[in-house]
């Protein structure tokens, strides 16, 4: 059962709100403070991914975020993009992600005006690299209800805390 649910229109400005809420809930749940930076960045990346998918496909539906603190602090970010497009940005082996150095191996003179699409592709690659590199417990799967995907991430809760769980 989520502790906090958040839904927002797929606008970049709201991603910051989701980050702030996510870290506030983590703090309230007693998650170790040294994980806050990681949680903030991971929630931002997952929400940015969802916003980008919605905008790419002109989907006005809300992006959903569910935060729970049972056995582990869990964040689920749910988009409503077509499943093929969403899973096309699924998370593979970080080692198989594009080599960033290769991004620059073009001779001078041919890159004076970088294609915005190329920059977007770099962003997507970096986003996946960050999520895969930051979050140990990370899954991307089809949403339970309706179209879209769910990015699920979790972090350990301190043992012996009050309330439910505490085994993480």
């Amino acid at each position: 059962m989520p502790t906090v649910r958040l839904s927002f229109t797929p606008a970049p400005a709201h991603v910051r709100t989701a980050r702030l809420v996510g870290v506030a809930v983590a703090r309230r749940a007693g998650v170790a403070s040294e994980l806050f930076d990681e949680i903030r960045l991971a929630i931002g990346e997952a929400c940015s991914r969802a916003v980008a998918l919605h905008r790419d496909h002109s989907i006005a539906d809300l992006v959903e975020v569910a935060l729970g603190d049972d056995d582990r602090f869990t964040v689920r970010v749910i988009d409503r993009a077509p499943i093929d497009a969403a899973l096309g940005q699924a998370l593979g082996d970080p080692a198989e992600l594009a080599d960033p150095v290769a991004l620059l191996e073009e001779p001078p003179g041919q890159v004076a005006s970088p294609d915005p699409a190329t920059e977007e592709a770099v962003t997507v690659g970096m986003r996946l690299a960050l999520l895969a590199g930051l979050v140990e417990d990370l899954t991307v799967r089809p949403a339970d209800h309706g179209p879209g995907t769910e990015v699920r991430m979790s972090w350990p809760m301190p043992s012996g805390r009050n309330g439910s769980g505490g085994r993480g």
């Binding site: 931002g44 620059l104 073009e106 001078p108 190329t118 920059e119 997507v124």
Partner: peptide, 22 residues
């Protein structure tokens, strides 16, 4: 205070743009 993948993409784009003009 915060940097995400979009910011990284912008920095990579700027690096490519600058190298493209020497």
């Amino acid at each position: 205070e915060f940097l995400d993948s979009t910011g990284l993409g912008v920095l990579v784009g700027a690096l490519k743009r600058l190298r493209g003009v020497g």
